[in-house]
Design a protein around this nucleic acid. Structure first.
Lengths: 326, 326
DNA sequence: CTGAAAGCGCTTACAG
DNA sequence: CTGAAAGCGCTTACAG
């Protein structure tokens, strides 16, 4: 039924050993050009594809990279990241498989089932999981949301985003600030860190404590938050968790007849396509997601092949895109 | 090093056969409760997880479902779809692995490497690929963008979306219509079908030919399109490819001082969160994506287990959400 | 009710 | 330069 290496061997009149050597371009073994060609031709003619299961069983390795996604809402940024990592690793013969883990089934079952050569996590793995995978010979690459003590861990310091937003607003003369936090609990890991960055920046710049309120993606919710922020000494600058939340705030401001940016300045995060279509166009924090993706891909390759140099972490990954909303 | 079924057998004083029977809850074999318990306990204690590679090699099956994504931009809708399918199949012990295929490497290499029990495609597979997978005992489930002749193929008829948009606009009294097509080539498979639905509906309702123009996600691009649409006999209704494009049109209308919906009515597709935050809130076509995802999950399960009833196709998957932009 | 043994398709020392 | 053989960790007829 299935074409095996034994078929290729028989058809080309060599042993399976030779077939394996040729097909895997085994280093240090010399094969006659004639033999090599014969084997390759036969393999092509018979449509031979090696059984990955057998190979994985025997060598304990595969060319699959398992990318485990935490329980986040997948936005366009994460999409680009995955897309870039996939493309980049594909150039090195690796296939990326993405699993959306909703905390569901133990990670162990999954990597045992896939037997990937590497597992890429966008959050740090549990100590125990990481150890088990390493012990099984699987390369583990993960990322952190904070500055991580391990120099080789990739981190996207969320606090820096909040800080950047505050600095931008302060620069424009705003002193009383509000933070529009996301209502989706799955984003709290990000939100908390960004908020702590906002708080720290306010303290450092001598601004009053920022007013943090959860804002759902409705005009009603944003209006309620806005009313609270405008009471007493009114907040004039709003840092939003992301562009969507920022657009809700913008809609509420419009609804209440506030002028943006005169009465209220708003800054988002992500630079989603729609941000520039808002009225007024939204100032936002842009991330160099491709640079981050490339770093992750290179980190996987370097971990897989010690001869490869470790990539250097991209710096300057955040960057304010100034538009008319601030 | 690694805990194998032989270890479990030795530790619990039975043969590997028995271990396999117990762990796989093999039908038709009777095992003493005491033995069963002993084996299960030992397995748990040793932290045994079967080698999927070995199992796949031996039985040719795994509990992995490979979901192949075409070269689309992954939007929130596709995210929900995948998320739902993953959750749903997970309840049946299956793990979904997503591969973003940028047309890159042959599909063959991938399914051979993963040896999944089923492959789920969101577009029809090439005849040849489908045959090869079926021959290898892999269940193939795919979907189509048109009404498909095969009754078991899942289809999300894109033409119906365009038709629905036109019907909605016509109902509101609009006769001269424009279509805002996406500029991203990766969406053309969808766009062409939606446009043909728009054309067909216009013809059927006796409306003039719709004016189709590509619109990028910038105010400038949308303004240019708008100017063209308003020349001569001005179009008063715009069907946009999706909500993002619709928001660009809305921004251009605002820019040119056109009143929406009085001067110009706009309808999108997708109901992204930001649609309701637009000024005015955007009328759009909503899709029952969860019902579609559930259908796909059930289709996979039914294909895997012939004893399961085939799911019935969800109908009424589209639905206009009327807001103030029309 | 349980076990000894074959075999899935590879890779890789080890001989020649 | 090439081949015979072992073995990766399972499942599953086949005996008992």
């Amino acid at each position: 039924m299935r074409v095996t290496s034994a078929d290729v061997a028989r058809e080309s009149g060599v042993s399976r050993t030779t077939v394996s050597y040729v097909l895997n371009a085994k280093q240090g073994v010399v094969i006659t050009d004639a033999t090599r060609k014969r084997v390759l031709d036969t393999a092509a003619r018979l449509g031979y594809t090696p059984s990955a299961a057998a190979r994985a069983l025997r060598s304990g390795r595969s060319d699959l990279v398992l990318c485990v996604l935490p329980d986040w809402t997948v936005g366009p940024l994460l999409d680009s990241l995955i897309d870039h990592v996939t493309t980049s690793l594909h150039e090195h013969g690796l296939s990326v498989l993405v699993h959306i883990s909703r905390g569901s089934r133990p990670l162990t079952d999954l990597w045992r089932a896939v037997t990937p050569c590497a597992v890429l996590g966008l959050l740090p793995f549990a100590e125990q999981d990481a150890r088990a995978m390493t012990r099984a010979g699987i390369v583990v690459v993960d990322a952190a949301l904070d500055e991580d003590p391990h120099p080789q861990t990739f981190s996207v310091p969320q606090a820096a985003i909040g800080q950047l937003q505050v600095e931008h607003l302060a620069q424009r003369g705003h002193r009383v600030l509000a933070y529009a936090a996301p209502a989706d609990a799955r984003l709290s890991a990000f939100a908390e860190r960004r908020i702590s960055g906002v708080r720290a920046a306010c303290a450092r710049l001598g601004l009053p404590e920022p007013r943090v309120t959860e804002v759902e993606l409705t005009v009603g919710s944003a209006s309620a938050a806005l009313a609270a922020w405008r009471a007493d000494e009114p907040a004039t600058g709003v840092a939003a968790y992301n562009d969507e939340v920022a657009l809700a705030v913008l809609a509420a401001a419009h609804d209440q007849g506030l002028l943006v940016p005169q009465d209220l300045a708003v800054i988002g995060v992500d630079d989603i396509p729609v941000a520039r279509l808002a009225t007024p166009p939204l100032t936002t924090v842009w991330q160099a997601i491709d640079a981050q993706a490339e770093y992750l891909a290179q980190a996987v390759l370097a971990a897989l092949d010690p001869a490869r140099p470790r990539p250097t972490r991209p710096d300057d990954v955040f960057h304010v895109v100034t538009r008319a909303s601030t």
